[in-house]
Design a protein around this nucleic acid. Sequence first.
DNA 1: CATAAATCGGACAAAACTATCCGATTAAAA
DNA 2: TTTTAATCGGATAGTTTTGTCCGATTTATG
Lengths: 144, 144
Amino acid sequence: MFSKACEYGIRASTYIALQSLEGRRVSLKEIAEEIDSPVAFTAKILQLLSKNNIVDSVKGAHGGFEINKEKIDKLKLSQIVDAIDGDKIYAGCGLGLKECNADKPCPVHDKFVEIRNDLKQMLENTSLFEMTAGLEVGLTYLKR
Amino acid sequence: MFSKACEYGIRASTYIALQSLEGRRVSLKEIAEEIDSPVAFTAKILQLLSKNNIVDSVKGAHGGFEINKEKIDKLKLSQIVDAIDGDKIYAGCGLGLKECNADKPCPVHDKFVEIRNDLKQMLENTSLFEMTAGLEVGLTYLKR
DNA sequence: CATAAATCGGACAAAACTATCCGATTAAAA
DNA sequence: TTTTAATCGGATAGTTTTGTCCGATTTATG
């Protein structure tokens, strides 16, 4: 569904959000440990998320990553996916046709539109805050 | 969503089904032309589909690929996807966790289960015959 | 039987994705 | 001011996916 990079990106953002809610800035090393991802690769993804204004990075000693508390509720999964994987999940034909639309559809166009709209809606409606909700009380997990 | 191989596989199977309904056996070359796919790569995919008893291949002069007319209505997209991409679209966590289930879910587990069930249902309920329906009358397309 | 038209199957090549390494830069703290 | 703890960014390596090439095999036909 998503690329590995995107999976790590969502998990990392969620962990950063969780800690930022507590006022804690977190280091790359801690993030990678807590979401069980390769450190250096995660660094690359965080750079990308930082450039896309999804997370804030602070260089130097005591630096790390954080997300502005007010933004946590506004940031949606769709923005993270867009930044890393682009729009190829929503856009683009399910059977790989370059040009596929209601006018010249592939045989499963309508059925795909429906499913991908559901996915799109879900990603656009799910905030990072919502992602953190179950984590604190041990209802959901970011590794294993 | 699907791999390129799977996209080509679905398009190729659909074209073979369409022609088999008319009693025509089709060559690799014709298939690749009609679905706009790389010839040699398509050959590999057709070998795989042949081994999985989704298409029948006939070697030698006047050979090619065909699908038994009775099977066209019974063959579902899910079988093609299974043969090429396996079950990774249904199974596996949306955020890439190795172990993610109702007991120890990732933060989007429930939402993903729903969307992927819809996808699964759709693939299991769509037959190759249904795929060919719009093609004959120019309502749907396999290339462009 | 010889030839031509096909698929089969193994080796190889290119591109994309995943992942690592390391020096440069930044900033806090001693 | 020096040291130390961080991210940044470019180069590189490994793996998977995508794609090509070509000889071997099979079969219809002349």
